[in-house]
Design a protein around this nucleic acid. Structure first.
Length: 290
DNA sequence: ATACGCCCCTGGTGGC
DNA sequence: TGCCACCAGGGGCGTA
């Protein structure tokens, strides 16, 4: 799924095309995805005017003038297809939820694996929703700092890579950007989270910010499941530095002649990629199992 | 509290 | 061409 930069890009696309519009017709093609859709979803959306968007971690919030917000999570394979009036294609077989605004703009939520989530809540309760309440700080916000990261991982004996993917440590980092941020910070992914020193934590905070900001600036990176929210082809292909590049060179050593190439390991059942020359395990540094 | 394995689901890819 | 194992951006849950 989309990680923070992709979710931010989708949210911006929705804001651009849907903000201020009124929802006319809702089509619910199945009862839910990973969890059932909230009761009376269509009725609660129809007739509502859209009054703003926000993102929290990997969640999108669409606020309505009814006093409710729709919560959207794209899971692993979710994408949003926005179409201009009269331009909506025939619905994809995995378009589980769609609506049209009164001006004919079409919104489709497509999610083949159905790991995504849709929920409704009073806008006033956004902060206490069970899926949002335990999220850590926004990595691009002022609340994320070396001190903040230290506080979150100081007692964690899991790997720093797994810790970064824990949404309560910092919100929005997934499997790709965890590898990319650690590469940029020069930190081995198997290091025990609590074993990082303050300079390493500071480097990591800056690396996370840089990686995410670059990806957002590029319009959200993409893999095959992900479409730009306007549905246009020609997705941006992100130049991952290590992710998915096992055996290839990283930018530090083109061709991998110096480091032998990017290494793929498995941590907690997920792939991790790193450069063995740039991301070295210090002598005596504790290694995390996961 | 923390950590880990397993599971949800479909589709693409590469090997035989 | 067909079949099959394996892999994929997430995260909740049950169990130690």
């Amino acid at each position: 799924m989309p990680e923070l930069p992709e979710v931010e890009t989708v949210m911006r696309g929705m804001r651009l095309h849907l903000d201020g519009r009124t929802i006319a017709r809702v089509t619910v093609r199945r009862e839910g995805m990973r969890t059932p859709f909230p009761p009376d979803l269509a009725r609660r959306l129809e007739g509502a005017r859209i009054r703003g968007f926000a993102r929290r971690g990997k969640y999108i919030l669409m606020r309505l003038d009814t006093g409710e917000s729709m919560l959207l999570h794209l899971g692993m394979s979710g994408r949003v297809l926005l179409s201009l009036p009269g331009k909506a294609p025939a619905p994809d077989r995995h378009e589980h939820l769609s609506f049209e605004t009164t001006d004919g703009t079409h919104f489709g939520l497509i999610d083949p694996r159905r790991f995504g989530t849709v929920d409704m809540m009073p806008t006033a309760d956004e902060g206490t929703h069970r899926l949002l309440a335990r999220l850590g700080p926004e990595p691009l916000g002022n609340g994320f700092s070396q001190a903040c990261l230290h506080q979150a991982i100081a007692r964690r004996k899991t790997s720093i890579k797994a810790a970064l993917m824990d949404q309560s440590v910092v919100a929005g980092i997934g499997n790709i950007y965890a590898s990319e941020a650690l590469f940029r910070a020069g930190i081995h992914p198997a290091r025990m989270a609590c074993g990082l020193d303050a300079p390493e934590e500071a480097r990591l905070v800056e690396a996370i910010r840089a990686v995410l900001e670059e990806a957002i600036a590029a319009g959200g990176s993409s893999l095959r499941d992900y479409a730009q929210p306007d549905g246009e082809l020609g997705y941006f292909q992100h130049a991952w530095r290590v992710y998915g590049r096992a055996g290839q060179g990283c930018p530090d050593c083109p061709g991998g002649k110096v480091c032998g190439g990017v290494v793929r390991i498995e941590q907690a059942g997920r792939s991790t990629f790193f450069c063995p020359r740039r991301q070295v395990l210090p002598v005596g540094a504790p290694i995390a199992a996961g």
